[in-house]
Simulated scan of single mutants.
Amino acid sequence: MKDAKVRMLIPIYLLTFALFFNIALLRDPFDAGALIMAAVMCVLIGYAHLVVNKFFSHGDKFLVTFVSVLPVIGIAVLYRLDPNVAVKQVLWFIIGISTYISLVILLPDLNRFARYKYLYLAGTLIFMSMATFFGITVYGAKNWVDLGFTTFQPSEFGKIFFVFYLASSLKNYTDLKSLIEPGVVVVLSLGFMVLQRDLGSAMIFTFIAITMLYTATSRIKYLLASFGLGAVGAVMSYALFPHIRRRVMIWRKPWEYAGNESYQIVQGLYAMASGGLFGRGLGLGSPQYIPINKSDYIFAVIVEELGMIFALGILIIYFLMFFRNIRTALKAKSTFTSLLVVGFSVMVAMQVIVIIGGVMNMIPLTGITLPLISYGGTSMLTVFFCLGIIQKISEEV
């Protein structure tokens, strides 16, 4: 068993040093800092594997592998784009992986947290509404709050409270009447996201709520009703808010507005087309022509330089992570923990679908991060928190 665990680390270490050594070779003079970065990443990943596999051997062994590979790719690409940004991301990775490990070590049985429904409700409403009243506008969305010494997205923390609230509320589902309160909370949360013009988060929250509702009730009629209400809400939002109509316009006709509104979309499509199946090579692309290439559009940079096959490998990792998480949800020993896993799994999966779908112009573009890969401290911390909860629940099944 120990040999199998070591073998899981070898390909991660090889990938890490291959990416960073490639970057070091392209710099003139040779960039020894890239190799130091690779060594730091390997130490952190090795420690995470040691703790999870040695001291918590009954949990999901593959989840810690997935949460190791994705940040390696993201930080390597960020280092290629801007070493200073990559160093900041490594610091967030350290905080994130430490949070992940701490949750597995320190948290007691998660079922005891099911009783704090109204605490989660308060947290949901506070973080969901915060940017509406105190937010600043970044790239068209009013979803950031400036504290003076740092900025953050309250909705990222709101997602965590939102999932905990729905899990604690829906675990005692009996009839339609018991769904009124969570239904009101969902509508309020989505309303704040629309007012903040954060369409990506609105879509993610919608699918979290619908999936958790169906998991708790197993009622097709509720599922269909939720999709129907969602469609009505989407149509009303399109009619009421000009920024939504503009997003749909540039999605439908990106080439007509390539010089202004859809410049970002078109540049991303050009970049991915130039990368082809195998990419132009790490460090050999032209990411400077892709707007917001460190966060929203990092997937386009990956496809251009590392190729569509490499990008497909990333998507497979996300799929396997989702598959393993749902497997944990099915085996969870209580409705509350099962709903937590479903909610957090859908949150991460929908984030991947929404941003990659937007970058590839399959759906209207919304500015969110690619989990564990894009630059963004708030996003990395919240995703690691969610996956740490899932890892803990996998230990208890």
Rank of each mutant, 00 (worst) to 15 (best):
N84K: 13
V51P: 03
V85A: 14
L125H: 01
F227I: 15
A311N: 12
H58N: 14
A216R: 09
I210E: 04
I250Y: 08
L188S: 09
V138A: 13
L320A: 09
S218N: 13
L381V: 12
Y120G: 01
F62M: 12
S102R: 02
S379Y: 05
V6S: 05
L110T: 00
M362I: 15
Y13G: 11
W251M: 02
G279V: 09
A167C: 05
A202K: 01
T137D: 11
W255M: 14
T211E: 10
R247W: 12
A76H: 08
M130C: 03
N111Q: 05
S345I: 02
G276N: 09
D146C: 00
I390C: 02
A76S: 14
G281P: 07
R252H: 10
I298A: 04
Q89S: 04
Y47W: 14
S129A: 15
V104W: 03
I204V: 15
I73D: 12
A48D: 11
I355C: 05
I309G: 02
L306H: 06
K159F: 14
A332H: 08
Y297D: 01
M8S: 14
S379L: 08
K253I: 04
G376R: 02
S98P: 02
L78C: 10
L387S: 01
L14G: 03
W92G: 01
H49V: 05
L176Q: 11
S168G: 07
L107V: 02
V342A: 11
Q288M: 07
T150S: 09
V235G: 11
D175R: 04
T150R: 02
F55H: 14
M212G: 07
Y120I: 03
P11L: 07
G140H: 11
I317E: 07
F161R: 01
I363L: 11
F30G: 03
